[in-house]
């Protein structure tokens, strides 16, 4: 019973938290990701992306995070309109924002990671393997991304009430579309700044 509660807390908290409450909690995670990520030289440049970037700024980090959330929420809302009847925009907004929470783990681990010099990495990519903390960060990124996707899926499912194959196919398509839109927006918006 306890493990069921834990798994529900980790992968589907949306049965208990949604709407503005989820959005508020999600924003706290996003703010921490932006601040810690900046000092850890980690940016979240896409709906399900994390990259190492030296000399990033708080403004840059928060613009990227804002683009991520807006792309994700917009695409999931439109996808929801295709497969579900009545549902609230605020539930999509809240659940999708909170779905990004696991990425905070990468920002925190990144803060304690010894990053090699990028010019050295370009000369010899295998130099990254000389930093165990960096290897750990890269290995950790996969389960964190999967965890975040699982949260997005459950958030989308709870918010729209959709189910079955239609839900799965629409969700997978929406994640890809949101990722592409976020990348395009990042490219165009950051080019103008």
């Amino acid at each position: 019973m306890k493990s069921k509660n834990l798994s529900e807390f980790l992968f589907n908290p949306f049965t208990r938290i949604a709407g503005w409450q989820a959005f508020g909690i999600g924003l706290i995670f996003i703010a921490l990701m932006g601040v810690i990520g900046t000092y850890a030289n980690i940016i979240f440049d896409g709906v399900i992306d994390m990259h190492i970037e030296h000399e990033t700024t708080l403004t840059h980090s928060f613009i990227l995070l804002a683009i991520d959330i807006i792309s994700l929420v917009f695409v999931m809302f439109v996808a929801g309109l295709f497969i579900a009847g009545k549902f609230r925009f605020v539930d999509i907004l809240g659940t999708m924002t909170l779905s990004k929470a696991p990425f905070l783990l990468l920002a925190i681990v990144g803060f304690f990671t010894k990053m090699p010099d990028m010019s050295d990495v370009l000369k010899d990519p295998f130099i990254m393997l000389s930093s165990p903390s960096l290897v750990f960060l890269l290995l950790l990124s996969l389960p964190v991304i999967l965890w975040s996707i699982a949260l997005m899926y459950n958030g989308f499912k709870v918010s729209t009430g959709a189910k079955g194959t239609k839900l799965t196919i629409t969700f997978i398509t929406a994640v890809f579309v949101a990722e592409i839109i976020s990348k395009v927006l990042i490219h165009f918006i950051l080019k103008r700044l």
Binding site: T15, R16, A18, G19, A22, R88, D91, V158, G161
Partner: peptide, 13 residues
């Protein structure tokens, strides 16, 4: 019920 609004709405649906 200490559940989220969409969860309760889904139960009703």
């Amino acid at each position: 019920l200490k559940l989220s609004y969409p969860t309760v709405r889904n139960m009703l649906n």
